[in-house]
């Protein structure tokens, strides 16, 4: 059984078809990158996978751990281990990072039928995860994303990822808004979090992030479909020849 199997996926936003028959299989322990020009449906795919309202799956199936998730609520998908690092993380004023983290960690544990994390273990986890991502104590003391810079918000997404340890992490344009040093730190954190039991789906415009996180597969998406798949060399070819060049060869 694969971790994720997408078959002939069609997604509409307000009756307009954005994804038009997409197929993708991700196995445990794999890192996949999806690249492609603007407006080809990359972020739509991410939103549809996590069940964002307004993203209507009109056809096809999405099997996650062998189970079709297309009818599941967003929170059920999350509790089953699907995590989205948002392109634009949202501010939750007044809710402290610590309170937020404890709440989401315990929600996940409750779903698995285990007791809430003890405060001591929780704070240990916060410390470890924070260190991994380069989150300082000052940031931990603030409200969720409130007043964070673009880069801090992105770091905070990976902080949460490190805390929650999902099986499937979808990173939606994580590199946008990150300076080169932060990108390196965040990428290293992700590399550290890679195991044989979890998988990553990286959505990006540029291959620079893939210099740090080596994908097992690279897919090129255009007009709502994956038009070409290959290994890391495909991303490099993209960098040299551009989308038109790579797709023309097809």
């Amino acid at each position: 059984m694969k971790l994720l199997e997408i078959k002939d996926l069609h997604v509409n936003i307000e009756d307009k078809e954005i994804i038009k028959g997409l197929n993708l299989t991700i196995d445990y322990g794999e890192v996949h990158a999806i690249m492609g020009p603007n407006g080809t449906g990359k972020s739509t795919l991410a939103s549809a996978l996590v069940g964002k309202p307004g993203y209507e799956i009109t056809k096809g199936t999405v099997l996650y751990k062998g189970k079709d998730i297309t009818g599941m609520e967003p929170e059920e998908r999350a509790l089953e281990g699907i995590f989205l690092a948002f392109q634009y993380p949202v501010e939750i004023p007044g809710v402290s990072m610590i309170n937020f983290m404890k709440t989401i960690i315990d929600a996940r544990r409750k779903h698995k039928g285990i007791d809430p994390l003890s405060p001591v273990d929780f704070l240990k986890l916060v410390k470890e995860s924070g260190k991994l991502v380069g989150i300082n104590d000052k940031m931990k003391g603030r409200a969720v994303n409130e007043g964070f810079s673009g880069g801090e918000k992105k770091k905070n997404e990976i902080f949460q990822l490190a805390m929650l340890k999902p099986e499937l992490a979808i990173l939606d344009e994580l590199d946008s808004g990150l300076d080169i040093d932060s990108l390196r730190i965040v990428s290293e954190a992700i590399n550290n979090l890679r195991t044989t039991n979890n998988s990553f789906l990286i959505i990006t415009h540029y291959q620079r992030m893939l210099d740090y996180i080596k994908p097992d597969y690279v897919h090129i998406m255009n007009e709502g479909k994956i038009v070409k798949s290959g290994d890391k060399s495909l991303a490099i070819a993209l960098e040299e020849k551009g989308y038109d060049g790579v797709m023309a060869k097809n």
Binding site: V50, K52, P53, E73, P74, E75, A78, L79, F83, L84, F86, P89, V90, E91, I92, T103, I104, A107, R108, H111, Q160, L164
Partner: peptide, 11 residues
């Protein structure tokens, strides 16, 4: 905001 929190597993 609601969707962000749901994506983190909260109903």
């Amino acid at each position: 905001q609601l969707f962000y929190l749901k994506q983190r597993g909260l109903n």
